[in-house]
């Protein structure tokens, strides 16, 4: 474990807490893409299939359970909770996210570290996570002004994988045989997708103005 990866995991956890706070405090999921939340639930379920078979550390197991439980809880909230469900705008959240699932799974069938069930689902979860934010970014562009908590949620979610890139550079430099090409390349693509969001987020922070993504 290094500082970059710990900071990355904490930033990821923070993004989830901010989203839970937004939904709990406002009893609303306006501006939040249910499809991105569903994609993240699939990412965690596919990536942590080894939750009960491979024990890495208490921290690792604990965080996996937190990520799986929180992502399922958020999807449940948006789909089932009467107050929150009413605020979900399905006319804005129209990204065909099942195409992302299909494309990621197809790619995982061809590009993986080993042709085993766990490795293919792991690669699938890595590719799917890289594009999981797309429905959310499209929704933000459509819904005009973005409330603070939703903006902070997306910012932290994008920042965490950026910190992981620093972690991979650090591990590549310090560990003799460390190579994680699938995770690295996917992580760079994932972080790059946030580029324009980061730019407008920085502008809104600098000008102390409302975050607004151009349509």
């Amino acid at each position: 474990m290094n500082i970059f990866r710990l900071a990355g995991d904490m930033t990821h956890l923070l993004s989830i807490l901010v989203l839970l706070l937004k939904i709990y405090a406002t009893k609303s999921c306006s501006g939040v893409s249910r499809k991105t939340q569903e994609l993240y639930a699939i990412v965690f379920l596919a990536r942590y299939l080894d939750l009960f078979t491979d024990f890495i550390s208490v921290y690792n197991t604990f965080m996996k359970i937190v990520f799986i439980a929180s992502s399922l809880a958020i999807v449940w909230c948006i789909r089932v909770h009467p107050m929150v469900k009413r605020s979900y705008d399905k006319d804005l959240d129209t990204f065909r996210h099942y195409l992302l699932v299909a494309a990621s799974f197809l790619l995982a069938l061809f590009l993986h570290e080993k042709f085993t069930f766990l490795e293919i689902f792991w690669a699938f979860s890595i590719y799917l996570e890289a594009v999981a934010i797309l429905p959310q970014l499209v929704l933000l562009q459509r819904s005009g002004n973005v409330d603070n908590l939703t903006g902070q949620y997306v910012f932290f979610l994008g920042a965490y994988r950026g910190l992981y890139i620093l972690n991979w550079i650090y591990r590549y430099l310090t560990e003799p045989r460390f190579t994680r090409w699938i995770a690295c390349v996917s992580g760079v693509v994932q972080t790059a997708l946030y580029a324009d969001f980061f730019y407008y987020y920085f502008i809104s922070w600098k000008n102390n103005s409302k975050l607004k993504l151009p349509a």
């Binding site: 491979d54 570290e113 994680r180």
Partner: peptide, 10 residues
């Protein structure tokens, strides 16, 4: 050899 490395990251 890559796959031998434990998936120790989240």
């Amino acid at each position: 050899p890559e796959a031998e490395q434990a998936k120790d990251e989240l």
